[in-house]
Computed example of a mutant assay.
Amino acid sequence: MAEEGEANLDALFAHIDDELDVTALSEDAAERDGPQARVTAPSVAVAGGAGRTIRNILAAEFGVEPEQVIDFLRSGDPVDRLNTAVEAIESAEEVTKSEYYGQIVFVRPAYRYRLTELAMELV
């Protein structure tokens, strides 16, 4: 299971590195495009750690600096760190979890029964 946890963490790291978060501006905001001001959908792209990013959310969750998030996630049990990180991401309204990683949940195996030697003799 540690291998699956590490694979999911790698996908999370790729999502952190590729993150480009769109944050809404106020209702009266407008963006400029070229020499003429034209009103477009009020949004601004936030990248490189500005605003509420996955890196910032995880830094707050784990109590580390944003630059230390990946090193922190690599330390300790990968499945436990991954599950905690995914819970924090899913509970945050500002970001969206990628489909390439997720929580790892252990399912109990089904009970298996077998007949004892005495039961086999009676059959």
Rank of each mutant, 00 (worst) to 15 (best):
Y113E: 07
N56M: 03
A29D: 14
G51H: 04
R108P: 02
P35R: 10
R81F: 03
L118V: 10
L115Q: 10
E90T: 04
K97V: 11
Q36V: 11
D18H: 12
V69T: 05
E99Y: 10
G76S: 05
P66D: 12
L122H: 07
E67S: 14
E94V: 01
A50M: 00
A92Q: 05
E27D: 15
D28K: 13
T84C: 04
G48T: 01
V86Q: 04
R81W: 05
L12A: 08
N56L: 03
M1T: 13
S98A: 14
P66M: 08
G5V: 04
P42W: 10
L122C: 00
P42G: 09
F72G: 01
V95A: 10
E87D: 15
T53K: 03
G76D: 06
E3I: 03
E65N: 12
P109D: 15
E6D: 08
G5Y: 05
P66F: 10
R112P: 00
R32K: 13
E121W: 06
A14N: 09
V69S: 05
L82Y: 08
A14C: 02
R55Y: 04
R108H: 13
G51P: 00
A2N: 11
L25Q: 11
A11G: 02
D80A: 15
V79N: 05
L9W: 07
V95P: 01
I104P: 03
L115Y: 13
S91I: 03
G51E: 09
E117K: 13
G49Q: 07
V46L: 09
V46F: 03
R52L: 09
E65I: 01
H15Q: 15
E94P: 01
L118P: 01
R112G: 04
T40L: 13
L73Q: 02
R38Q: 13
A7I: 12
P66T: 11
M120Y: 00
D17S: 13
G34D: 03
T116C: 05
V46Q: 08
G5W: 01
A11R: 10
T96K: 13
E67K: 11
S43W: 06
R81K: 15
E4R: 14
G102V: 03
A47R: 12
E121S: 12
A41P: 01
Y113K: 09
I104W: 05
M120T: 05
A59K: 10
K97W: 05
N8D: 06
E117Y: 04
L25T: 12
E94M: 01
Q36D: 15
S26H: 07
A60R: 14
E90W: 02
V105S: 10
A47F: 10
M120E: 14
T53Q: 06
A50G: 00
T84A: 15
V95L: 05
I57G: 03
I54G: 06
R74M: 05
A60L: 10
E87V: 12
N83F: 03
G49W: 08
L20N: 12
G63C: 07
F106Y: 14
